[in-house]
Design a protein around this nucleic acid. Structure first.
Lengths: 386, 386
DNA sequence: CGGACTTAGTAAACTGCGTAGCATTATTCT
DNA sequence: AGAATAATGCTACGCAGTTTACTAAGTCCG
């Protein structure tokens, strides 16, 4: 609560920001609309929006065919393409790079397969190539990128370095932020994949209406991302949500139930085996149904621990297994009812394998908002460093 | 981020608040000091602080013997006794009422024993009597109280009604907020005791330096209160932290280990039995040491679940058993090291049985800050309703 | 003991910002 | 074509904080 005194120039800054926020995320607006939305008088809104145009934050749309009586109004539009941000999902098997503008509209994206055994140098080189390709196709230069967020598996510290464990080979000794800094001068952030996917659900997924969310990344590995009071929570050391480490919580073993089915086609990869068991269960195979049941029973203990701790409004079931959410949600809900005082809503993610990259985009956009659009409002150029 | 436009009158309001915040919690200040602290010019700080004096928020201290060169300055002081708040701890065995001024200085407090079997009407009557006695001794009228927060055992919903379970007999069907509203028109809040004690640790306890805190109320019942990013978290339904409900977490049984010692003096109450076992363990009794060990082992599972979920900076061990923290902290730390990825600091509370009431005071003060000292700054009178 | 020095308090002029109100302009309706 | 409607542009106004200058009230030192 360290309020500080304000003078007139700061007031103008605030009002300019207020107009800018009123401009964003809406259809092109007239000055009168802006005045109404900001609570400012029309002349004030007018000079402020014209300043925004002069600075390059907004652009004018001259009146066309008017549909109503009276003099047609000029409309002003936020220049969403003044800058762009990158969201990157570095997975074990794939790399996904997305580029969007300042309003979050997807401009370009590219998925490229990755060698699961590739070391950090090789993997980062593949990331670089994918980024280059995306920028090339979008016709962007390096300086058009205002922020980058990258998602990786496993816990990450405040500096973006992997700690404790990760399934990216050799990643423990890598500093991906430093790598990206050799090419980009904008703010760069590296974050855990579950946490990013959680952010994505609140942004464009099934949890847009909630402020307290537990997101489950369910696949061969199970992880969680937590949003409390609308904000992603990392914990003091960046390992919030890693409930699977508790021995009483059988998250490590839970997916093993699925692989243990006796009739799984030999030679199937683990992920395919799980999908096969889910399908068999859907078709009535009783051994498969038992396997799924056991998986859910073990999964539920960890989810219950998270739910009892946080009392969220919504639990989102995402990750690779969310394609089989039809088999999981109802039994999981019943299991949770056994454990929890208050059972939250349970929803299946619909973001498929794009959640991590989308969440990365959102965090990068947040970074831009905090750096450029809050404290001081300069002309639109890429912010430096973080 | 719904920024709204500002005009000059609002700017003055903000600056007045800024001066008020600069005035609070510090020694009486000169205008020059205020100007420096707020970033305003000296004339501006001057007229603003004089307005605060006129409104009754501040008072002047005429210059006395000056210790430095130059003309001695008038000093201005926040009028902390312009209003007061009540913090109430309604326990099973006792009622504790505290009264403090707007800067949090304790003005009066009174503890009075309660009949464990008393019903809600009788208990609330005792609360009323204790409040009256405190106000009488402090020479305060009902209208001098600007906010009240009351702590009770067990989960509480957003309206202050007990849900799920509580150990106050008959409390489920009581509306304590409505009861207090018959006498007080100020904002009233009823909150779970663990949560309040957590708030107290961050305010005046051992966790003043942390923003992410797990507080354990350890006694015959075990409970938890969570502070994340400096804010008390209730969860969507008010049951955040109730990890003890999980069967894999043996919090219900954990204290039973202490009572099960074969040589506990017969006729001892459960609380005394636990204290006896702790003392015996301290003196080397091996059966007692085993009992404590088992208690800690079971306690640790639940704590680990909370810690793994939230990754806090500090875990505070409070509640009735915190007198025996010397026996608990080190073994608990070792147990946590087995379960957790990152072991947080573990500290013992020093607030004895005053934590709940202190936390209640703090929340009541927060309420005053939000109502009176933030949006609009009227003359100092008690806010109405909540 | 008195003048130089330091700091506080006060009053004026100045600048900047948003508001209110009115004239002007562009379009539709009759 | 003229009335009605709604946006735009312009000017005078009031208010808040800053700057600057000056006065008041102390201390320090020769």
């Amino acid at each position: 609560m360290a309020m500080s005194g304000t003078d007139l120039s700061r007031m103008r800054e605030m009002n300019q920001l207020s107009v800018l926020w009123a401009l964003r995320g809406t259809a092109p607006s007239t000055v009168t609309e802006l005045a109404g939305r900001t609570g400012l008088s029309r002349p004030a809104a007018d000079v402020l929006v014209q300043q925004l145009v002069a600075d390059g934050w907004a652009e004018v749309e001259e009146p066309g065919a008017s549909s109503t009586v009276g003099r047609p109004a000029r409309r002003y539009r936020f220049r969403a393409n003044a800058g762009h941000v990158l969201g990157i999902d570095v997975g074990v098997h794939k790399i996904l790079v997305m580029l969007c503008d300042l309003e979050g509209n997807l401009v370009q994206s590219l998925r490229c397969p990755a060698d699961p055994h590739a070391g950090p140098d090789e993997r980062l080189a593949a990331v670089d190539e994918t980024i280059d390709e995306v920028l090339r196709e979008a016709g962007m230069a390096v300086t058009d990128v205002w922020a980058i967020t990258m998602g990786v598996t496993g816990p990450v510290d405040g500096n973006g370095r992997s700690i404790i464990s990760t399934h990216l080979p050799g990643w423990r000794d890598t500093d991906p932020v430093a790598h990206l800094r050799t090419r980009f001068t904008c703010p760069i952030r590296v974050e855990n994949d579950c946490k990013l996917a959680a952010v994505a659900e609140r942004w464009k997924g099934v949890a847009q209406d909630a402020d307290d969310i537990v997101y489950l990344l369910a696949g061969l590995r199970t992880g969680a991302g937590l949003i409390i009071d609308g904000t992603l929570r990392r914990g003091h050391g960046g390992v919030a949500g890693e409930i699977g480490a508790l021995k009483a919580v059988r998250w490590l073993n839970a997916p093993a139930h699925l692989a243990a089915h006796p009739e799984v086609p030999s030679g199937a990869k683990p992920g395919e085996a799980a999908a096969w068991v889910f399908q068999a269960a859907r078709e009535g195979d009783s051994a498969a149904k038992t396997a799924v049941q056991r998986y859910i029973r073990d999964l539920a203990v960890g989810v219950a621990a998270l739910v009892l701790t946080l009392d969220p409004q919504i639990v989102v079931y995402g990750g690779g297994f969310s394609r089989s959410a039809d088999l999981v949600l109802d039994p999981l809900r019943r299991e949770l009812a056994k454990h929890c005082l208050r059972v939250p809503e349970l929803r299946a993610s619909t973001l498929r394998d794009e959640g991590v990259a989308l969440g990365a985009l959102r965090l990068a956009l947040d970074q831009v908002d905090n750096t450029l659009l809050s404290s001081q409002l300069a002309a639109p150029v890429a912010p430096q460093f973080s």
